[in-house]
Design a protein around this nucleic acid. Structure first.
Ligand code: FES
Ligand code: FES
Lengths: 145, 145
DNA sequence: TAGTTTTCCTCTAGATTTAGTAGGAATTAA
DNA sequence: TTAATTCCTACTAAATCTAGAGGAAAACTA
């Protein structure tokens, strides 16, 4: 039940992008430095993000990435799905023939319900909410001594 | 975000056990045959199930497994957790130092919320509910021609 | 007691997925 | 033209998953 680091880093990168894009396109090198991830790895993530219509890119000098939509219109669900592929706990949800006797399998209904819960939670969270919370954390951190 | 086959088969095996244990301990060979899983693989699963106090075992001839508690008192959460280890979407929930700057990471709160959603859903489903639904599926199947 | 059944334990191994890295081509701004 | 930056393809090392082999230990049966 674990998310890949793609999703983990990808969401963080999107938050960073939301916070940084006021002055035009953001370079991966900047995000890489701020998040402590290699630029090469970010390239992979942003390929998926772009392919799923979440970011726009500008090549060449002074290029970079910007959000394809306002952050309020981007949900966590879209980001995670773009990076993770699918949120189904079991493959037989999409492809029923992966389990023989799937028509008579009661557990399949459970996994279907679980998938719905996960999706509805992630759909309820927008990137702008997350970006705002992140900003508050930076400005008013709680120090644990 | 996928469950391992351990969890998938394990839950099915527990349902089968709940349905079959009226006449005493159930042998793995029976479950293996009914569920189309190798007996050797089931041994692994039941080791975890037993270690987590979900089943009791009886060795030797006419031995087998029974539920450690009535099926109404066993939740899906317990079964999945026994087999999967943890339901946390990211490791830094348990071990904060896996991510540097985790104190200032807004996404961590999101994953914490997601974990809660997953757990509360699985806690709301008992093995007896599932076993009953499975029985109904067998008795009144819908045939897709 | 001897024989059979069944769980229990350790070890091994192939397959798959994950998490990156390398190297360079294409594009754009200055 | 030069420098910056995304884009593309391929590759690889490591981790994890999914088992399977072989036999020890326990308990029932006769
Ligand atoms: S149909 Fe896939 S687990 Fe039952
Ligand atoms: S603290 Fe682990 S993802 Fe942010």
């Amino acid at each position: 039940m674990r998310l890949s680091t793609k999703a983990r880093y990808g969401v963080r990168a999107m938050v960073r992008l939301a916070l940084s894009q006021k002055d035009g396109p953001v370079q991966l090198s900047l995000i890489a430095e701020k998040e402590g991830v290699s630029e090469k790895y970010l390239e992979h993530l942003f390929r998926h993000l772009k392919a799923n219509g979440l970011v726009l890119s500008q090549r060449g000098a002074r290029g970079g990435y910007v959000l394809a939509r306002p952050a309020e219109k981007i949900t966590l669900y879209e980001i995670v799905k773009a990076l993770e592929g699918s949120l189904a706990p079991v493959d037989c949800l999409k492809q029923a023939d992966l389990c023989e006797r799937s028509l008579f399998c009661a557990t399949r209904e459970i996994w279907k319900g679980l998938k719905k819960k996960i999706e509805s939670y992630l759909k309820s969270k927008t990137l702008s909410e997350l970006a705002q919370e992140q900003e508050e954390k930076i400005n008013a951190p709680i120090y644990h001594i």
